[in-house]
Design a protein around this nucleic acid. Structure first.
Length: 170
DNA sequence: TCGACGATTGCC
DNA sequence: GCAATCGTCGAG
């Protein structure tokens, strides 16, 4: 069953750990489906979070994070990898959850490659999209053991924000 | 308009 | 250890 708007409308710190164990589905134009089990996420939350792109304010790039939850926020990193994020929270609250890894494919850059993401996915609605969405995983019967740790690659955000344990693995 | 840099990865 | 590679943003 596809995850609802309500699921993504909650705070990023609730959505990020709850996405662990969920199934990410990408349907290609060929009709072929790629299904990945999410096992690693990170929360980016608000303009005050110096590790969040929205800390620079509302710009063309960060715009979608200010919208409702359940939308796709993709951006090009190092000129070669598209990183996948889902917006969360309510309208006006810039938040996003980075999909950092899955059981089948590890690494945010590799996930983007496997899903063949590009700029056209910016703003895609996970609740109605025909090519990308998230489902409940019916195979999992027990809730995964979740561990937390500091987010990756944001030392520039300073000791406080880089030190928040907003990376979730399960 | 210009230059620095990044929520990464893979090869030397 | 470092190059690849380009959109974004702040400075000039």
């Amino acid at each position: 069953m596809r995850l609802t708007r309500d699921f993504f409308s909650r705070d990023a710190l609730s959505v990020a750990p709850d996405l662990l164990g969920k199934t990410l589905v990408r349907k290609f134009e060929t009709g072929e489906e790629l299904r990945l089990t999410i096992n690693e996420t990170e929360a980016y939350r608000g303009e005050e979070d110096l590790g969040c792109h929205a800390s620079k304010g509302r710009t063309p790039r960060t715009e979608v994070m200010y919208h409702q939850g359940g939308l796709v926020y993709v951006y090009l990193i190092y000129g070669m990898y598209w990183l996948l994020n889902f917006t969360s929270g309510a309208e006006g609250h810039p938040q996003a959850v980075l999909i950092r890894g899955s059981a089948e494919i590890e690494g945010p850059g590799r996930i983007g490659q496997a899903l063949m993401l590009d700029k056209s996915f910016y703003g895609e609605d996970l609740i109605s999209s025909e090519r990308l969405w998230v489902e409940e995983n019916t195979n999992i019967t027990i809730k995964p053991e979740i561990t937390t740790s500091p987010r990756v690659g944001i030392d520039y955000a300073g000791k406080y924000w880089a030190g928040r344990h907003w990376r979730f693995r399960g």
